[in-house]
Design a protein around this nucleic acid. Structure first.
Lengths: 195, 195
DNA sequence: CACTTTAGAGAACGATCGTTCTCTTCGCAA
DNA sequence: TTGCGAAGAGAACGATCGTTCTCTAAAGTG
């Protein structure tokens, strides 16, 4: 025994499960992926799978947590790289542009999962609402730094959400560019002293 | 025999099936409703159900068609009641306001169904894309009447889509009002000669 | 080495799904 | 009345789901 704490040699079973679940859930939806396929994709026995996650709902919640973390980190990296407050707000749409170009993009998993389980699983619904609320809060902070009113933040959030569903359904990554253009207009108007 | 054409005495079995399916699909999602529950809700035998719709996918397509018709009719009624071109564009968001207030509102069924079946059923995916494309075309026509550029129509569509997902997930019908406000701003800027 | 614990492989279980089949009843033409 | 086609009620089927159980091999401990 090398250490008394659990040691991660390559990648832990938990990580492999979450990673495989993320990939499969994103590609085919939550309900279309069975636990057996999860076991095969993760290279883990069913016993261990259920040892780590007692329920499929727990797997889903873990995937959503990971998505939330990666999404937030990627957006924050974009924001941090922007030079000024205005650029920080627009960085959100730059992130969307890159994201929509990803070959694996199949829409926002939070929106998709809410459509599948929102009416059935309260825990999943709450996690999704928390994610969206967190994004809106972050956007509100950025808008406040910019000197804009809270109503502007709400409008910018609508543009981001609309871009995600439009990109998912109609395809094409230009939804992000259109959202960015609209955001620029809304910001300029909100920050113009006259009117 | 009263007539040689099929006579609709009360409501036809087909209508009853589609109406029940619409209500159940909207409330719990497409995959969570079985054909047996559909039979019970429609008051129809399984044999007749499968006689009218050979497949569950056909039921879903029929429900989407009905939704598309009712959605389009309701929006067009709002548009027709507006006095001028600008009001006709804003009528779209007035419709959203009313819609989100409906106690049965559970998000846009097209978005929800795409999340559930978009990756699995090409026919369903195509119907959904056609619905969204039709909305964008109608919006583009209204914007053209207004004298605005096509890019404005795309931006206004993003606001409408974002309002629908936001209202579905975060609840509250104020998403429509926020979208309307943003739309006013975008329209005003696009129609202002200077700049 | 003997023994206990652990974990892997996968069969099995009960539920539910979409779909089909069986059985029975009913309405109606001859 | 007799015979027949249509339709309702619901059992049944095969597949798949989430979850649990069994069996066996391996590994750590005395």
């Amino acid at each position: 025994m090398i250490s008394d704490m659990t040691l991660i040699e390559e990648t832990s079973p938990r990580e492999r499960i979450v990673e495989a679940a993320d990939r499969l859930f994103n590609a085919r939806g939550v309900n279309s992926v069975g636990m057996d396929q999860l076991r095969d994709a993760a290279g883990v026995s069913l016993k261990r799978l259920y040892g780590v996650f007692p329920t499929k709902e727990d797997v889903i919640l873990a995937v959503l947590e990971k998505r939330h973390r990666m999404w937030t980190d990627a957006v924050e990296a974009r924001i941090a790289a922007a030079p000024d407050a205005r650029g920080k707000v627009l960085a959100v749409y730059d992130f969307l542009t890159d994201w929509f170009r990803d070959v694996d993009f199949r829409g926002c998993m939070f929106i998709n999962t809410f459509a599948e389980l929102g009416a059935t699983s309260p825990r999943v619904a709450a996690a999704i609402q928390e994610h969206k609320a967190g994004f809106q809060r972050r956007l509100a902070d950025l808008v406040t730094e910019l000197g804009g009113p809270p109503s502007l933040a709400a409008q910018l959030a609508l543009l981001a959400e609309g871009a995600q569903t439009t990109a998912a359904i109609s395809g094409g990554s230009d939804a992000a560019a259109q959202a960015r253009e609209a955001a620029i207009t809304l910001i300029d108007v909100a920050l113009t002293p006259g009117r």
